[in-house]
Simulated assay, not measured.
Amino acid sequence: MNSLSPLSALANSSGLPQLLLALALLLFSLPSPAREQPDPVALDAAFKPAEQAAQLLSLTEAKALKGLKRVAVSQFSVEFVTSDSVSAETSGFAAAGRARVTAHHRLVGVGQAEFQALGEAMHAEFLRQLQASGLEVVPSEQVLAAPSYRKLAATGLAMPDIQDGAITVAPAGMTLYGANRLAAQTAQPAGMFSGLQAFGSAMSAIGNISEQQALQAELGDAALLDVHLRVHFVQLTNQNKGFFGRLASQASVSAQTAPSIRSARMGVQVGAYSAQLALKQALTLDPSAFSEVRESASSKAEIAGAVLAGLISLARRSGSKNNSDSQRFETVAEPNRYREVLSTGLAQTQAMLVARLQAER
């Protein structure tokens, strides 16, 4: 049996809220452009969720999961990234001039309606998976009707949350509150939220601890599960990373189109303790969810031969003076195939979370 970390012991002995530890771990797990990400794992027909769970999921505070029998899913959300961009530039030191290139990518062919339907279906599937693992699952209607949940929801971020580059959906009646709301705000582009707003959300997350403990009691001492999944559509690469890359004679970027699950997190609140499970590597799905990649109508030229799951490259040579280029691309999803591919991939990702939960309890 794993013991609680020294940091947790200190937090409990000094009376500090244990959620602060979970909050720090959750924010640390957010994607960071400055941090090198491990290679993604193909989620194909040979993928076995139960066998991969121990390898692909990190876990903190495993002791909190021992003896788990009754659970309630208090938060469940899926974030769909709908646009992204990447830039690269040379330093101009070893060439005649500096070059810069930027590529903007946008997902088209699917939208809020498809995302909401997928989110609802995945929530229902997750509840089914939990029950199949032997856990007693509190019905969603009972969770949403609990007085403490209504108080928590009143402080939360209403769903769907629609941003310029992403849409986050949840089952009807659910909101993002506490640490999940703060994480959603922290993941937005710089300048989207002021430091004062982030601080206010952090204080709200800490203030929610007592309500969460009250909610557990109202639901028959059920552990609270909160799940967040993040879906992307393109892998963008700056080919001029690092010192020597910036000395290259041209600036170049590339994009590999395929659906992927970039993040999967599950928090388990048991009394005052919180265990955290998180996906360590991205999972890439079947690229046949997309029919083509094309240059957007606003661009001056078309991309010849852009094909399914093709590698799109864009480069700008440095010349006698600084020069730059920018192009916009569209990844076109085939709605039925997209729904099929994402349903399978998300269900397998959830199955990993449930399998790890079952193994630890």
Rank of each mutant, 00 (worst) to 15 (best):
127 L>P: 00
297 A>H: 02
202 A>V: 13
9 A>S: 11
350 Q>N: 07
179 A>G: 02
322 N>A: 06
356 R>V: 05
135 L>D: 00
225 L>M: 09
245 G>M: 08
152 L>N: 04
43 L>Y: 14
21 L>R: 09
197 Q>N: 09
165 G>C: 10
329 F>K: 00
268 V>Y: 04
274 S>R: 13
342 L>S: 02
14 S>C: 14
17 P>N: 08
118 L>M: 11
194 S>G: 15
82 T>I: 15
256 Q>V: 14
121 A>Y: 10
277 L>K: 04
276 Q>R: 12
204 S>Q: 15
172 A>P: 00
51 E>S: 11
25 L>W: 08
150 R>E: 04
69 K>I: 08
49 P>E: 11
332 V>P: 00
352 M>C: 07
223 A>Q: 01
130 L>T: 00
189 P>Q: 06
259 P>A: 12
334 E>C: 03
158 A>Y: 03
12 N>H: 15
198 A>W: 10
45 A>N: 10
247 L>H: 01
93 F>K: 03
355 A>G: 05
253 V>K: 06
26 L>Q: 02
247 L>K: 04
296 S>P: 00
155 T>W: 07
5 S>R: 08
278 A>H: 04
350 Q>S: 03
243 F>A: 01
280 K>C: 13
136 E>I: 02
238 N>T: 03
24 A>E: 09
64 A>C: 07
194 S>R: 09
102 T>M: 14
360 E>C: 11
191 G>E: 08
87 S>Y: 03
